[in-house]
Write a protein that binds this DNA or RNA. Structure first.
Lengths: 186, 186
DNA sequence: TCTTTTACTGGACAAATGTCCTAAAATGAC
DNA sequence: GTCATTTTAGGACATTTGTCCAGTAAAAGA
């Protein structure tokens, strides 16, 4: 994750070596859960290789996909990480996945170590906010069909790599309806 | 807005006087627009008295309410403020409103002035993120009817103070449908 | 207070979307 | 390669939600 931080903030060699000393590594198998709902999320993971999805379960027992994360992206239940309350999401590996991990204690050490890490914490939170805002806008402004079309136009990766059943709930529709939309679009 | 900051972070008298020197004041009349879409949002406002709403316009020309803000709350197009890109939202006063204003330059001065302001910037961004996340979850997990019921249970203020037409699009439904839901709930 | 405008309700119908189900296609295990 | 399992497509029908509209209630302006 180092180079992602470097691209956002100007770090000294010392600051980066501090990061190095705090990161740990893990691999997870396809299907495995990294976090289950009702746990407090105490770590932020960075994907070296693989795909993760986050989902919750509604009152009928259906799994609703909240988001996906691909290579070189971060994943966590940020809400739970921030509030230290139980997560509503489960985080699952969609493929075998290699991770770099920054846990709460490590992050707090970084934050205490100085201005630069404070600032990057704020900037990354801002970026997460902006992404979430875009998604919120797409739910308020667009229909399921339009969200699917946007995804085809701007995020081909999702269409190629994610099983349709997961895409459907991510788009806020049923698989049956997604199938209808796909037929109409062709 | 001072006391809100004080409640989150332990500030020195000097740090707070710096804030005092940077805040400006404004009053707006009911109906007035503070920000229109396609402007870059360069200030964060804090509501001393009154109510604001943020809305965008969809492809049919309908106004879709994005959020409301009440006394002692902040409002901005945070996404535009962060990215410096044009806002998609309009911000409008629903009543005559008294504001305290922190503009981009003032905020940057605070951030440059030290650790404490950096940190509060991150913490407030985190809180905004958590709020937005809750709203996103409610759109993915719940139906319009359920969102209305949640609002009745947990945010009576919205029901009492906001015209139904605005509440409807905030809940992601039409006024016609909200009227149906209200009839059923009683 | 009276008038004009705006907001809310609800009927009738239409469109969008969900439910349930079966068959075909794709994938994974051996 | 074969068999079992999972995923996807789509028919038939039900439900939800939207559209259009008119009547009434409420609010704003003179």
């Amino acid at each position: 994750m180092k180079f992602v931080f470097q691209s956002i903030q100007d770090f000294s060699a010392y600051e980066l070596s501090l990061l190095d000393s705090l990161i740990t590594f893990r691999t997870v198998k396809k299907g495995e859960l990294l976090l289950t709902e009702n746990q407090v999320c105490n770590e932020i993971v960075f994907i070296e290789k693989g795909i993760l999805r986050s989902f919750f379960v509604n009152h009928k027992g259906d799994e609703i996909t909240n988001c996906f994360a691909f290579e070189n992206e971060f994943m966590a239940s940020f809400a739970s990480f921030i509030t230290k309350e139980k997560a509503e999401e489960n985080i699952q590996a969609l493929t075998d996945t290699k991770l770099q991990i920054l846990d709460r204690k490590a992050l707090e050490k970084l934050y205490q170590s100085g201005f630069n890490w404070q600032e990057i914490g704020r900037k990354l939170t801002e970026l997460e906010f902006v992404n979430l805002h875009k998604r919120m806008v797409s739910f308020q402004k667009l229909s399921g069909t339009q969200r699917y079309e946007e995804l085809c136009k701007n995020h081909q990766k999702y269409i190629q790599l994610i099983p349709l059943q997961y895409l459907a709930s991510y788009l806020g529709i049923t698989p049956r309806h997604l199938s209808r939309i796909r037929k109409a679009v062709v």
